[in-house]
Design a protein around this nucleic acid. Sequence first.
RNA 1: GGCGGGGUAGCCAAGUGGUAAGGCAGGGCUCUGCAAAAGCCUCAUCCGUCGGUUCGAUUCCGACCCUCGCCUCCA
Length: 512
Amino acid sequence: MALNLFNTLSRSVQTFAPLDPHGLKVGMYCCGPTVYDYAHIGNWRTFVFADLVRRLLEFNGYQVTHVMNITDVEDKIIKRVREQATTLRLFTSQYETAFLEDLRALGCREPHQKPRATEHIPQIIALIEKLLARGIAYQAPDGSVYFSIDKYRGCGCQYGQLLKLNFDEMRAGERVKSDEYAKESIADFALWKTRVPEDGAVYWRSPFGEGRPGWHIECSAMSTSILGDTFDLHLGGEDLVFPHHEDEIAQSEGATGKPFVKFWLHGAHLLVEGKKMSKSLGNYFTLRDLQAKGYTGREVRYLLLSAHYRETFNFTLEGLAGAKTALARIDECVAKLRELAGSGKALGAEPTTIQSLREEATSALTPALSPGRGGIVGSPTERVALNPDPGSEDDSLVAAFQAALNEDLNISAAWGTVFEWVRKTNRALAENTLTVPGAAAALAGWEKINTVLGIGLAAEAEAPAELQALLVERQNARKNKDFKRSDEIRDQLKALGWVIEDSPKGQRLKKL
RNA sequence: GGCGGGGUAGCCAAGUGGUAAGGCAGGGCUCUGCAAAAGCCUCAUCCGUCGGUUCGAUUCCGACCCUCGCCUCCA
């Protein structure tokens, strides 16, 4: 089944094919976080989108090397390091750690490589030297090194591959004071920024003097040194199209003379409560803010994954509440299937421990040829698919789901197939027409597509013993038709955050 | 000013030249002693406005209105 993706380079949907002659390995680079603060919900939309792309590639059988840089030197970082009188590493490591925690909470698979800019200074310097040698870069009187758009174009290279540029019509100027720049041309951008007193201890030695890398060069240096001069996929938020990605192309192709990236994918931004997110409007959320409101990472993930990646998405608290309910509907259905499928021990559907599931998932999903320390950091309860019986009814779910996502990640249509399946399954469950093998097959289908959705399972909280005791007491009260006591216990449990569900099979305690 | 997205039910959000997926909320019902964030059913004569093409347009074309983004740090 062909995977079609919208390529910003061609501004059209194209069938994806890897550069690898065997059609197996895929190199994917995603612009990662600048670690100067906690990442906000808008950042997360992009990272969850990148995770979806990776998971879908893997679902389609590719061996993906997923690289995400950590930008740990940059203007804002330097400013805060100075203000807080700390060191660069000390300052950035706390936010890097927080970032990775959040990434995990959102059910994202950990990138195979997470290169830090500060650990790739030699590669960055080498790249700048190459550009200087080719005459595409120049050192200004102040010591900084700039990339020359004119020289680059003079070599027959194209600047403006990702968008149409019309320099004459651009509003270059308002915020650019010409005397601040030693650049030859306004469009040129810094490769190496010469050291200034405000930088404090943040500088490196280089053949062009003390200083630090410019904004765009790190991505070119790290992506090509890890994935090669030309690689398959590069993703990021839509705001990075210009100038960041355009400049990455210029630097990389200017240095190597080869095409940089085959497919560029850009995720749209989100609004919060219909407005651009801003701290002053009070609609600025980090994942931690939402967790403090009682939402889990998987609920946030679900909401972020509910709309097409190229459309602006309106993130609302009401929507998040809806996400929680919708997810509970899926959980409920899967739990019932599990109950039914688990009742047929003879069919090999024996209960499995979380630990064994993790091992299973890790061994099955870690790409054998991936370099470094890849692996699964998704939800700990995430399960890898069992092999569904060919011809079982739920092949239709998997096929419809995959068809939807392979059409430029039509996630809304994909969720549509999931919820139709939920309704169909619930109906069969209610009518008692689902057999044990049927339930196992349905479950297998769900688990297979869940390797792409990555929403794992709801954390199945075990009720503490004292609550279990209350439950038994309530059962006895009901048996004796002491409904007053029974309802008291129900209220008591509800106050503690647990809700009782009565069913013909007995009581069930569910965490709110 | 240049370039690029959008406008589909109360909210969110897919989609198609042939008569509107899905989720949330709402309504009805079932189960229940009563309930339930348990289940089922239901919920857009209509897709920003006005024209055009067509047997037929929400879907194609044109104009207009509104809205968002990039052009400057930014996911």
